[in-house]
Simulated assay, not measured.
Amino acid sequence: MYLCITGFLPDTFEDSSLKYELDVDTVFTDQIVQLLCHKSLNEMASGEWRLTDEQAQKIGALINKAIPRDLEIFIGVEA
């Protein structure tokens, strides 16, 4: 299992298609799970989680990837 970050236009737009997707390297999994205050990756697998701007930017800094600021960003677990 691995973490996947996705981004969509804000709800004010009619376009609900995926605009951003990033499969996170598993080397960062434990750090991200802790950053988001989850107990485990299995706990996170129960849904998709909306990230605050601050969380998204912290994760981006951790993984050294720019995460778009103009999208609604989510994180979830992929099999």
Results as ranks from 00 to 15, higher is better:
His38Gly: 03
Tyr2Ser: 13
Glu78Asp: 10
Leu62Tyr: 07
Ile73Tyr: 07
Tyr2Glu: 11
Pro10Asp: 02
Asp11His: 14
Lys39His: 10
Ile73Leu: 06
Asp30Val: 10
Leu18Cys: 12
Asp15Met: 06
Ile59Pro: 07
Glu48Tyr: 15
Asp25His: 11
Arg69Lys: 11
Gln34Ile: 06
Ile75Tyr: 04
Gly7Met: 03
Cys37Ser: 14
Glu78Arg: 13
Glu43Met: 01
Lys58Phe: 04
Thr29Ile: 04
Arg69Met: 09
Asp23Cys: 11
Leu18Ile: 01
Glu54Cys: 01
Cys4Asp: 07
Ser40Tyr: 05
Pro10Cys: 06
Lys65Pro: 00
Ile67Glu: 08
Ile59Asp: 01
Lys58Tyr: 01
Trp49Leu: 05
Glu14Ile: 12
Leu62Cys: 03
Val27Ala: 00
Leu9Lys: 14
Asp11Glu: 15
Phe28Val: 11
Ser17Ala: 12
Ser16Lys: 15
Thr12Gly: 02
Gly76Ile: 00
Asn64Thr: 00
Leu22Gln: 07
Arg69His: 07
Cys37Arg: 14
Asn42Ile: 08
Phe28Ser: 05
Ala61Asp: 07
Glu54Gly: 00
Leu62Met: 09
Ile73Thr: 04
Leu62Arg: 01
Leu9Arg: 03
Ile32Met: 09
Gln55Trp: 08
Asn64Phe: 00
Pro68Lys: 09
Ser46Val: 04
Val24Lys: 12
Trp49Tyr: 13
Cys4His: 04
Thr12Trp: 05
Asn64Leu: 00
Lys19Phe: 02
Leu62Ala: 04
Glu48Gly: 15
Ser46Cys: 05
Thr52Gln: 07
Ala45Met: 07
Ile5Arg: 08
Ile5Ser: 03
Asp30Met: 09
Val24Ser: 07
Glu43Gln: 14
Gln57Asn: 08
Leu41Ala: 09
Val24Cys: 02
Ala79Asn: 08
Phe13Thr: 13
Ile75Leu: 02
Ile73Pro: 06
His38Ala: 12
Lys19Arg: 12
Gly7Leu: 00
Pro10Tyr: 03
Glu72Ile: 13
His38Asp: 08
Arg69Gln: 13
Glu21Tyr: 11
Ala66Pro: 03
Glu14Val: 09
Phe8Tyr: 12
Phe13Cys: 14
Leu3Arg: 10
Tyr20Trp: 03
Leu3Asp: 01
Ala45Asp: 12
Ile5Trp: 10
Leu3Pro: 00
Tyr2Trp: 09
Asp23Arg: 15
Asn42Gly: 12
Leu3Cys: 02
Glu54Ile: 03
His38Ser: 04
Gln55Glu: 14
Pro68His: 08
Lys39Cys: 02
Asp15Tyr: 10
Ala56Gly: 12
His38Trp: 11
Asp25Glu: 11
Ala45His: 06
Met1Ser: 13
Met44Glu: 04
Asn42Trp: 10
Ile59Asn: 07
Glu54Asp: 02
Leu41Thr: 03
Thr52Ala: 02
Ile32Leu: 08
Ile59Gln: 10
Arg69Thr: 15
Lys58Pro: 04
Asp70Lys: 13
Gln31Ala: 15
Arg69Trp: 02
Ala66Cys: 00
Gly60Asp: 08
His38Arg: 12
Thr29Asp: 09
Ser46Asn: 12
Asp25Tyr: 09
Ile63Met: 03
Ala56Asp: 07
Asp11Ile: 13
Val33Cys: 11
Gln34Lys: 15
Lys65Glu: 06
Phe8Cys: 01
Thr12Ala: 06
Glu78Val: 10
Glu21Trp: 10
Leu71His: 05
